[in-house]
Design a protein around this nucleic acid. Structure first.
Length: 492
RNA sequence: GGUCUCUUGACCGAGUGGCUAGGUGCCGGUCUGCAAAACCGUUUACUCCGGUUCGAAUCCGGAAGAGACCUCCA
């Protein structure tokens, strides 16, 4: 009993075009996303990637697909400098902090998960770690050696890019660059004499003596090359060929092109049908990155402790901020933009709350279905969250008008509105109300008392007292709003 | 140097040939003891120069500026 699926369009980096999504298999969609290297705190860039593919996951589920979502943790094998220094990032951190590499990795894994959980990203079905898949990686190296697409040199094994390019498939199909381009521009790095060509990449590296993380292999005591883990884990959990492979744009070349070369070389198949890449976060027009030393961690966003931040921003503000831009555009950071998102998000949530208590009429006086359908369609069209949100704001305007009795809505339409508005906000966009802390009950009790005192002061026209209360509360960050129905408050 | 992308109003940010994007801000209004909030309304656009077209922010050519990848990175 195949259920009806909504049609999804997505931009495939491989073809450079927007395509209709046709899954490889009827029963399940496979999606692999390159996760973080766990040697440092999660930053805004990690947040963007996590949120982007969380939306992809949610939209596919909303469209009726059964999805297996895999996102790895890289806890080994990324070299800090170039190939032969043997300086692993996780390991370096471990030495600096006087810890086991695994201790470092697990610490930052937990931090990362906490951060993306806070941002209301659904957890992937599987979160494999690279160090847990050494055997699988060794098997791929063996397969490539058997096919003559790799060569051993001084205990390390390298992928023969030129041979692959000339006999199997063009190298660089994803980034749309030719081997000639790459040849002309590969930097001459120290210690590359082991390689036949500078653009060959390591499948297995012999570990220097002082290296802590190393495993036995047929070639040396060493560690796997840094493109190999995704190939190994993708194959293990999703098969030799799966539907979607995602990651940040910075991974497009060489990482993803190398993955393709390894997979095609070893298994004769393109690993994924659709390749999705989210764009970068910029800070004052420059890419944010660990190596640029201009990154803001997610924890700093929540606490407002980074020097570029004027205040703390809630997880949902950050999520909403990212959803206001399309995932394939760069997104420039600024306090102004974040504050705008914070206010806009509050407005959206206010309107959402009002829906259930709207007065019902015979007729609906605004084009509800058209706007809602546009909102739904936007998200199915290459995950266009900004257009979806624009339509939701359009609905907000009408919701407010109905609440003000300047427009009307029928009972059936109200149900349709509530159901779909909630589904889009909650299920598809993953937006929920921020509630701050567990002390809300106590605060609420206190606030009710204070507001009651102030109310009686106002009734006796003792405005000196009522204003004093209002001003004092403002001092501690609580804002009072007076209305006909009474006073309300909110944390600023 | 090679490959590629981008340039939209005060700010952020959609939009690929004709139809209001949207949010925030500003201004005006409603409401209010005052204020804030809320709500309603309004305002400022498509880097420049050519071309194609009945018609271009949108297509083509050129210029200027910015950025990304080529080296670890989401």
């Amino acid at each position: 009993m195949a259920t009806e699926k909504l049609s999804v369009r997505l931009y495939n980096t491989l073809s450079g075009m927007k395509e209709g999504f046709r899954p490889l298999r009827e029963d399940r969609v496979g999606m692999y996303v390159c996760g973080p290297t766990v040697y440092g705190e999660a930053h805004l860039g990690h947040a963007r990637s996590a949120i982007t593919f969380d939306i992809v996951y949610r939209v596919l589920k909303y469209a009726g697909y059964n999805v297996r979502y895999v996102r790895n943790f890289t806890d080994v094998g990324h070299l800090l400098n170039d190939a032969d220094e043997g300086d692993d990032k996780v390991e370096k951190k471990a030495l600096a902090e006087n810890k086991e590499p695994q201790e470092v990795a697990q610490y930052y894994e937990a931090k990362y998960l906490w951060a993306v959980d806070s941002l209301n990203c659904l957890r992937p079905n599987l979160m494999p770690i690279a160090s847990g898949h050494i055997m699988e990686q060794i098997d791929i190296v063996k397969a490539l050696l058997d096919k003559g697409l790799a060569y051993e040199s001084e205990g390390s094994v390298y992928f023969d890019v030129e041979k692959y390019n000339n006999t199997i498939k063009k190298y660089g199909v994803l980034s749309h660059r030719t081997l000639e381009d790459t040849k002309d521009n590969s930097r001459e790095l120290a210690g590359q004499q082991e390689k036949h060509n500078p653009f060959d990449f390591a499948l297995w590296k012999k570990a220097p003596k002082e290296h802590i993380m190393k495993w036995q292999s047929p070639w040396s005591l060493g560690f796997p090359g840094w493109h190999l883990e995704c190939t190994a884990m993708g194959k293990k959990y999703l098969g030799e060929e799966f539907d979607i492979h995602g990651g940040g744009m910075d991974l497009l070349f060489p990482h993803h092109d190398c993955e393709i070369a390894q997979s095609v070389g070893a298994f004769g198949k393109m690993p994924a049908k659709y390749w999705l890449h989210n764009n970068m976060i910029t800070i004052e027009g420059r890419k944010m990155g660990k190596s640029y030393n201009n990154f803001i961690t997610i924890t700093e966003m929540f606490s407002g402790t980074h020097h570029l931040l004027q205040k703390a921003y809630s997880p949902m503000t950050i999520r909403f901020f990212m959803l206001m831009a399309h995932y394939r555009s760069t997104l420039d950071f600024s306090n102004e933009a974040l504050i705008a998102s914070e206010k806009g998000f509050a407005r959206l949530m206010e309107a959402k709350k009002k829906i259930s208590s709207l007065p019902e009429s015979k007729e609906t006086s605004f084009p509800l279905k058209k706007i809602m359908e546009d909102a739904i369609d936007a998200v199915l069209d290459d995950f266009n969250t900004p257009i979806c949100i624009a339509n939701l704001f359009e609905l907000c305007k009408h919701i407010n008008s109905v609440a003000d009795k300047k427009a009307t809505i029928s009972k059936e339409d109200k149900e349709y509105l509530e159901q779909n508005f909630n589904a889009l906000c909650k299920d598809v966009l993953g937006l929920k109300e921020d509630n701050s802390g567990t002390d809300t009950k106590v605060v609420e009790g206190l606030m009710n008392l204070i507001l009651e005192v102030r109310k009686s002061a106002r009734e006796q026209k003792d405005y000196a007292t009522s204003d004093k209360i209002r001003d004092a509360l403002k001092e501690v960050g609580i804002e009072i709003k007076d209305s006909k129905e009474g006073a309300e408050w909110r944390l600023m």
